[in-house]
């Protein structure tokens, strides 16, 4: 239904050593790879997986925040939250469109999400339990997403890189908006500050998990780095995030829930950085494998929206078809 044409060309490429070397030379010269360019099947597959996963994260990521739209405490906060969740839908749309340029349809990607074959960011499998979570998600989750995504603006695949420029601008706005919400709570009453601290306690470790497995355990990094799909390792990005965020928590007067967090002058080539405690990788893998607190609810909500919307999509197609036939009849008459 949605798949964009790829000029109908055969996507198979004879991956001779010469072809692969020439492709790598283009990447090394920082040329952008565009939709109709020949590319190795594995490059295409990696991008489809990554962009699809990213798009799904935006769509599933609408749910935890949409959970608070009707309960937002002021009209200003309500409109900001609604606009933010709408932006996420917009990001999903650009990203699905970017993935479609690689020859996969949005419908096929959606079906993979609903069947559990395609993954999305595990962070959205945690529940939003208080209003402060709207601040913490903006501050920490969007903050972590920006660390991951800014380098993607220079990704070797043109449509993805270009989509990410706008996505990152909006994410950066969301991050500041979330932090501003946290400031209001932390400048508020003791009850509001406690709400903010509780939220930080719940979102801190899942946010660190957003950068993925440790470099020693990551399956996809090496080849993705050579193809300039990935520019920094998971651990490098995680460290940058911790170093930036601890000071922001200090400014709010909130405590990071990590007793092992300590400044280490020798880190980051002598510029200093924070040592932090061990991530609970058992929890990480449990959530990735579908057993987090909200995995089943999130997919059930997406399935329900998709299945209950089927008659609407069918009606739109049927109506378009009738209009087409009518126009054809008018032309022949």
């Amino acid at each position: 239904m949605y798949s964009q044409g790829l000029n109908g060309q055969n996507l198979d490429v004879n991956e001779t050593p010469e072809f692969l070397a020439a492709f790598q030379a283009r990447i090394d010269a920082d040329e952008k790879i565009e939709p109709n360019d020949p590319m190795p099947a594995a490059y295409r597959k990696t991008l489809i997986r990554q962009i699809g996963q990213h798009a799904h994260s935006e769509i599933v990521g609408m749910l935890p925040e949409a959970n608070w739209i009707t309960r937002a405490p002021t009209l200003r906060r309500k409109t900001a939250l609604l606009a933010k969740v709408q932006d996420e839908g917009g990001h999903g749309l650009y990203l699905y469109s970017a993935a479609e340029t690689l020859g996969v349809s949005r419908e096929a990607m959606t079906e993979e999400l609903l069947s559990g074959k395609a993954k999305y960011s595990s962070i959205f499998n945690y529940p939003t339990l208080s209003w402060a979570d709207m601040g913490a998600i903006g501050w920490l989750v969007d903050g972590a997403a920006i660390m991951n995504q800014v380098p993607l603006c220079r990704c070797s695949y043109g449509p993805y890189a270009r989509a990410m420029i706008r996505v990152c601008k909006e994410e950066s706005f969301h991050q500041r908006q979330g932090y501003e919400l946290m400031i209001s709570l932390c400048n508020g009453t003791a009850a509001q500050k406690a709400m903010a601290q509780d939220s930080l306690n719940r979102w801190w470790w899942p946010s660190l998990m957003m950068f993925g497995p440790s470099d020693s355990d990551s399956q996809h990094s090496d080849q993705s780095t050579a193809w300039k799909i990935k520019r920094f390792t998971n651990d490098e990005l995680r460290q940058k995030f911790v170093d930036a965020t601890v000071k922001q928590a200090d400014h709010l007067g909130l405590s990071i829930p990590d007793p092992d967090l300590v400044w280490n002058e020798t880190k980051n080539d002598g510029q200093g950085g924070y040592d932090f405690g061990d991530i609970d990788w058992d929890e990480f893998w449990k959530v990735v494998k579908g057993h987090g607190p909200m995995n089943k609810d999130r997919i059930a909500a997406r399935k329900q929206a998709w299945e209950e919307g089927a008659w609407v999509r069918e009606a739109a197609l049927a109506y378009a078809e009738k209009q087409k036939q009518q126009t054809a009849q008018q032309v022949t008459a």
Partner: peptide, 12 residues
């Protein structure tokens, strides 16, 4: 409806 529309375009 936000997040539950019949298609992404309507979620916008």
């Amino acid at each position: 409806w936000c997040g539950h529309a019949p298609m992404l375009e309507e979620d916008l």
